[in-house]
Amino acid sequence: MLNQRSRFIFSALCFGFAFLYIPILLVIIYSFNDSRLVTVWGGWSFRWYVELFNNENILNAALLSFQIAAITATFATIMGTMAGFIMARIKKFRGRLLFSGMIASPLVMPEVITGLSLLLLFVSLQDFIGWPTSRGMNTITIAHITFSMAYVAVIIQSRLTEINESLEEAAMDLGARPLRVLWDITLPIIFPAMISGWLLSFTLSLDDLVIASFVSGPGATTLPMLIFSKVRLGVSPDINALATILIVVVTLGLCIAAWITSRQNRSAK
């Protein structure tokens, strides 16, 4: 009876994982397909990878995406850390509830709404103060920072509430001024959380299609936007190769973030 039940659970698990990961696996396998037709297997080959690296459009889009992701991650980490710090360490101030609500709202806001409202903001800013003069990399980066920093703020806040405040008080008692305490004690302890926040923002930015499509202008095409427009004309095999590279990058990022978090948990014990 028990055996039967566990066999059922096991097969359900296998089916679930197969449903999630077989398509991804197929993309990876077909990226090495020699055939021009996506659905027909024509033997192993690296030709689509070679073609990919000779395609200037794709390389430019990839470069743009990585640049945006890196800038976004850095700024989102700095600003998100500050916001998380305030949420965790300052118990009472005017408008705290509003502040915390506004920090958390990008997490639940539909991307379409965020994208549309940011577009409207950028357009009216251009009308009133003449900036941004054109939409492109700068507007996409700003848009990405706004929603990524919410994730960082949540990560930092939860890490800071785990840390006993007496650590900071002890440092102050031993002769460190408040800024010194931040530098010597607080930042080193939350540093792993900041790294995982950075990696998370990087992946979020690299991954985003909807918001980028709204706030981008002519001439600025991110990788997801390029893939999406190419797929509309039919799936070409080089997209498989591109997707495989993206999968590898994102998986690496997530693994590093998970490794850092688990190490940090172990040292906290």
Partner: peptide, 20 residues
Amino acid sequence: VAPYNRPVNIMFQNYALFPH
């Protein structure tokens, strides 16, 4: 006088050792 300028030191109940 701020804690960092006092000729006083405190030992906390949870010891508050710097974990890093």
